[in-house]
Amino acid sequence: MSDEEIIKKIKNIHPQFQDITPKIKEVVYKPDKHLAGKSKIYRDKAKPRRIKIFTFIKKIRLNQQIEFEKILRVSVDSQGNIIKTVFSK
């Protein structure tokens, strides 16, 4: 699935970010040797994984002085499946 198709899919689910162009980051997460030394569960379960993260940042104006960022982060696997969605607090 292309990035454009993924973005369209995300915007359909979260229309409040319709006018935002996301930042796209591709990452390969590799097991961390220090954590593996500290946690048996981490050592057994951590696997390398390639993920694409789409970050949508929308400026929200609360009043004339105060503005903050509402951020939507969507993680997508190599098949284009959405595997995680989080928002900034």
């Binding site: 990452v27 961390d32 696997k47 993920i51 993260i53």
Partner: peptide, 18 residues
């Protein structure tokens, strides 16, 4: 923190940026 790491890695297999 340790529990966070164990639960997260058990669920998704890695710790991501957030």
């Amino acid at each position: 923190r340790e529990e966070f790491i164990n639960l997260t890695v058990s669920r998704q297999g890695y710790l991501d940026d957030d």
